[in-house]
Amino acid sequence: MAKNHFDRRKGYAVYLMPGLIGLIAVIILPFLVTVGASFTKWNGVNPPQWVGLANYQRALTDVKFWAAFRNNLLMIIAVTVVPTILGLILSVFLFDYFSKKFGPVLTNFFKAILYIPQILPVAIAGVVWKWILNPNWGSLNTTLKALGLESLVHNWLGDPDTALGVVMVIMVWFQIGYPLVIFMAALQRVDPELLEAAEIDGANWFQKFFYITIHQIRPEIYVVILTTTIYALKLFGQIYVLTRGGPGTSTIVPSYYTYQAFFEQANIGYGSTIATVMTLIIVVLTFAFIRLQVKQEANGEG
């Protein structure tokens, strides 16, 4: 077997075959079918009929479609904005103050507990909260009654005015551990000499936080923002368990709307349209993020 410079790269491509075949069968082909179906009227039984952009036109004037994406923006607040900010503050607090006063063991113990919601299947987390929020016998209302706060007893998930807000609070509870764990790890990279130098120069805690800490862990902040924003768009299990998108359309999200179109209304064309729009948003977000990261690296950041 002659091995020379020219065939050193050869013989590797065959190892990619199983992965590539799987990728085509499970991801690429289904995705192309979905995009194709978004231009058709199809109930899954009869042959699909080409309708051009009709589904997209319908989406433009579909109140429920806009409600789903509006709710999605609110979910980004609950899944990305609030947990990232809280996670930053909390991780700096734990890393900079708490672990110095109480030691790493207690700090890590608290960090682990705050991460627990993240390890639950989303649907199970939903089941747990649904039990607590049950209007008749849930522990929240029962406790409020016992405390004499009868006026606060409420059908939390059954009232269109409160349902979305409650789901958002649950999502903050669910998400907070993720940025916390990532930022705590990132903070170990921050050069303590930099902070000491800043302190000698008279920088206060806030200045150190904004100009040094945040700056140094920027790559992780971007990753958290990107992954959680995409995650917000894919929220399904919680909505399925907690509210099924209701009451009315008050907690409808894009993912649940596609599910309804596909499997409740047998409107494959329209469901595919919503799924395609979701994909487009994710692709745009991802490219914007990669560009930002490349720009950062070009500026000499890691």
Binding site: L23, V26, I27, I28, L29, P30, F31, V33, T34, V35, A37, G44, I230, L233, K234, F236, P254, S255, T258, Y259, F262, I268, G271, S272, I274, A275, T276, M278, T279, I282, V283, T286
Partner: peptide
């Protein structure tokens, strides 16, 4: 792509 595409865009064909 496998990581980024939403499962909603794969589910019906699958």
């Amino acid at each position: 792509l496998g990581n980024f595409l939403p499962q909603e865009a794969l589910v019906y064909p699958l």
